[in-house]
Simulated assay, not measured.
Amino acid sequence: MIYATLHADGHSCNSLFAEEDLVHRHNPTSTPRLLRQAFLERGIEVNTADLNQGREIAFELHLEGRPLSPLQVPRYLIALENPYINKLNASSDYCQNFDLVFAWDVRLLQLAHVVPILIPHPLVCHDFPGPEQRDIFSCLINANKAFKEVLPSDLYSERINTIRWYEKQAPGQFSLYGLGWEKSTPAFTLGSKLKRSMSRLQTRLFGIPPFPSFRGELKDKSTVLRRARFSYCYENSRDLSNYITEKIFDSLVNGCVPIYWGADNVLEHIPEGCFIDRRKFSNTEQVHQHLLSISAADHAQYQHNIWRFLHTDGAHKFSSEHFVKQVVDRVCRHLDGLQTQAAMIPK
């Protein structure tokens, strides 16, 4: 058996390959498990570093930019996280430390060893309920997060704006789910820290929740997305080409029409008739009025378009199976090339 080490922050004892990720709550592990199985079928056992102690390691697989180990073996990087969150993922200098880099960021494609990929999704799709069977008008499912620095492309703040608009103007037509909404939004500036303190005080003294639209955490998003007509799917930042995450696909596979804001080239990957493009509207009120105008027949047409798209090669490019095949094939081909080169060196 050939052994390889997967480096992923916070993970040990193969926790990334468990049925349930206990390190990052509710984080799906289906793609890492599929990746490990695909390597096993090639005779390569991938483990976290603690389980490979004392073994000869053939290569390292790094999930996201992180500090490098001193081991002198082939290294491969999978860079999926937003570069505003993990800045190493966008660093050409850092990427030079790897034999291959798998990345969606088009700005890295100038490097010869970068393999273009898309952020994977399981894309498990079943027949979904029609509009008449959906009792939630609109929802937003995200963790309560914020950028530490001010970014012109920030969409964390736009999620908050959407939530606040609904709580004031149409509370009966919106539900909020996810991690951390029982608390105020994280604060990093003096002004935001003061607002957070005031919110906490209101909660303690008067029992006023920071987000009245909050309905709870979700272990399985589909329990809500199969009940909702529309879902606000905002990436954490906008205008990053190819940065299309699970948010829109979670909605699509459940027949929930997404209101999407994020990648500037989303229409190169997902047809216009499958989602509502937030960029066409000036504010949440305009979006909401448009949603109200969508009839059951119109909604059913969106669902028809979504179903057709999910069964095309265009959607398959985002599947976990396609992602895993790209990574495993390229890594194994590179390793075979290294072995061939070694065999040609005179002894």
Rank of each mutant, 00 (worst) to 15 (best):
H290Y: 15
K148T: 07
A79K: 13
R134N: 07
V46Y: 08
R55I: 00
N236V: 09
I244T: 07
F323W: 13
R55A: 05
G262P: 01
V114T: 09
K221M: 04
R279E: 03
D220H: 15
P209W: 14
H11R: 12
L205D: 02
T31L: 08
S192C: 01
G54E: 01
A263I: 03
D250N: 15
L225N: 05
F39M: 11
R107C: 02
A187H: 06
L123T: 09
S175F: 04
F323E: 01
T29W: 04
T5N: 11
I248C: 04
E41V: 03
G216M: 09
L16Q: 11
H304S: 13
K325D: 11
L240G: 01
L240W: 11
C139Q: 01
D50L: 09
M198G: 12
D298C: 08
W181I: 04
A300T: 11
Q96H: 14
F59A: 08
V253E: 04
V328C: 02
V266P: 01
K168C: 02
K219L: 09
N52F: 06
K219Y: 08
I44A: 05
E132G: 06
T284H: 07
N82I: 02
L88S: 05
G180R: 08
R278M: 03
V73D: 02
Y234R: 06
V253M: 08
E149M: 09
Q326D: 03
R229Q: 10
E321D: 12
T203P: 00
F230T: 02
L80R: 03
L194Q: 07
F281G: 04
E20D: 03
F59V: 06
L71E: 07
A342H: 14
L310W: 10
R238G: 00
N254Y: 08
Y3L: 06
L68M: 12
T223S: 15
I270S: 10
D50E: 06
A146L: 02
P83Y: 15
S293R: 07
E167Q: 14
L292K: 15
L63C: 04
P120N: 12
S293M: 04
A79F: 06
E81N: 09
E285Y: 03
N89M: 05
C13Q: 13
N89T: 08
V324E: 02
Q339I: 00
S295G: 05
L71G: 02
